[in-house]
C-alpha cells in the first residue's frame, strides 16, 4: 500500500512538472508571436489610435516587466484562470467549460467505438490468420491507418449526407428544433454518428492491428500452448486465455492515444462544426485569439496528463505483476 502511495506521488509530481512546462511554453510562445493582443482587439473595432492601444495594454497588464507577467500567469494557471479572451470578452476558463462537454461526448464515443470495433476486428483477424477474412480486415485497417482524418469526414458527409441524405452533415443538434427528452437524445445521436465514426476510424485501425499482433504473440507463449494441448477449441483458447493477456498493451495504448484523440477532435470538430473545444480552438486560431488557443492547448494537455495517470494506475491494478517504481 505504501508502495502504491509512493508510486502515485511520483506520478503526480511528474504530471505537475509536465503541466508547468506547458504553461511556460505557452507563456513564451505567445510573446514570440507577431503583433500583440491589444492591437488585435483594437483592429477589430474598425479604427484605432495609439492612445487606445496603450490604454488596452495597461488594462491587460501587457506593459509590466516580463517576469512579473510570468509570475502572475503561473499563479493564474494554477488557479485555473486561463486568462481573458480579448475577443469574446469572457474568461477563457468559462469558454472552455462551455465547450468541453461536447468534446468529451465526441471523443469518448469515438474511443469506445474504436476500442470495441478495433479489438473485435483484431480478434477476428487473429482467429483467421492468413485466411481471406484476415486479409480483408488487415487491408481495411491499413487503409484506415493511411487516410487523413479530415478527409474521411468529408467523404462520409459526401456519402451519407449529400448523396444518401441519411444523416445530418454538421452541427450538434437540429437548428431551431425544440426537442425534449428522448427526441433530443436521438437528435444529438444522429449528429454524433458521423463525427464519432470519423474520429474513431483511425484508432479503430490502430487497435485492430495492435490486438491482432498482440494475440498472435501471446498465443505463442507456453501457457497457451498448454491450453491448446489440453484439447480446448481454438476459439476457447483465444477468448479465455489469450485475449485477457493480449489486452494489456491495448490499455497502455489507450492512454497514449488520448492525446491523439484530442488533437484529432480539432480536425473533426472543424469539419463537422461540432461545438467542442477543438472548434473553439479553430475559431480562436482564425481570430488569433491567443488566450483561447493556448487555454485550449493547456486544457487538452491536462486531460492527456490525467488520462495517462489514470491508465498508469489502472494498469497496476489490472496487472499486479507490474513492478511499482
Amino acid at each position: 500500500m505504501k508502495k502504491i502511495g509512493k508510486f502515485l506521488a511520483s506520478r503526480l509530481f511528474k504530471s505537475v512538472l509536465v503541466l508547468l512546462m506547458i504553461a511556460l511554453f505557452n507563456f513564451f510562445l505567445v510573446r514570440a508571436a507577431p503583433g500583440d493582443p491589444a492591437e488585435i482587439l483594437a483592429g477589430q473595432s474598425g479604427a484605432v489610435d495609439a492612445e487606445f492601444i496603450a490604454k488596452l495594454r495597461t488594462e491587460f497588464g501587457l506593459d509590466r516587466p516580463m517576469i512579473v507577467q510570468l509570475g502572475q500567469y503561473l499563479k493564474n494557471v494554477a488557479t485555473f484562470d486561463l486568462g481573458y479572451s480579448y475577443r469574446q470578452q469572457a474568461p477563457v476558463t468559462s469558454l472552455i467549460a462551455e465547450h468541453l462537454p461536447a468534446t468529451l461526448l465526441l471523443t469518448i464515443t469515438a474511443f469506445i467505438f474504436a476500442v470495441a470495433a478495433g479489438v473485435s476486428l483484431g480478434t477476428q483477424a487473429a482467429l483467421r490468420v492468413g485466411k481471406w477474412g484476415d486479409t480483408v480486415i488487415t487491408t481495411f485497417s491499413m487503409l484506415a491507418y493511411a487516410t487523413p482524418l479530415f478527409w474521411v469526414g468529408l467523404m462520409l458527409v459526401l456519402l451519407f449526407s449529400v448523396k444518401l441524405e441519411w444523416l445530418p452533415a454538421f452541427g450538434y443538434q437540429t437548428v431551431g428544433a425544440q426537442f425534449t427528452g428522448l427526441a433530443h437524445v436521438m437528435d444529438v445521436a444522429r449528429h454524433l454518428l458521423l463525427p464519432a465514426l470519423t474520429l474513431g476510424m483511425f484508432y479503430m485501425a490502430v487497435y485492430a492491428r495492435l490486438t491482432r499482433a498482440s494475440i498472435l504473440e501471446v498465443s505463442q507463449l507456453d501457457f497457451v500452448k498448454t491450453a491448446r494441448a489440453k484439447g480446448l477449441s481454438e476459439r476457447t483458447v483465444i477468448t479465455r486465455h489469450v485475449l485477457r493477456n493480449a489486452l494489456l498493451p491495448v490499455i497502455t495504448y489507450a492512454g497514449i492515444q488520448a492525446g491523439g484523440l484530442i488533437g484529432g477532435s480539432l480536425l473533426v470538430e472543424t469539419v463537422f462544426a461540432w461545438p467542442g473545444i477543438g472548434r473553439l480552438a479553430f475559431d480562436a486560431l482564425l481570430q488569433r485569439d491567443y488566450s483561447v488557443l493556448l487555454g485550449v492547448f493547456f486544457i487538452a494537455s491536462l486531460i492527456v496528463v490525467i488520462v495517462n495517470l489514470v491508465t498508469d494506475i489502472l494498469y497496476t491494478v489490472v496487472d499486479p505483476r507490474i513492478e511499482l517504481k
Binding site: 509536465v18 505567445v30 492525446g259 491523439g260 492547448f297 495517462n308
Partner: peptide
C-alpha cells in the same frame, strides 16, 4: 528522457497547430 516524455504527453497535433499559427 524527461524531455521526450514531455513531448509525448503534449497532444502533438495541437502543438503543431499552435506553433504554426503563432509563428505565422
Amino acid at each position: 528522457v524527461g524531455f521526450i516524455e514531455l513531448f509525448q504527453t503534449i497532444p502533438s497535433f495541437f502543438l503543431a497547430v499552435v506553433l504554426v499559427a503563432i509563428l505565422t
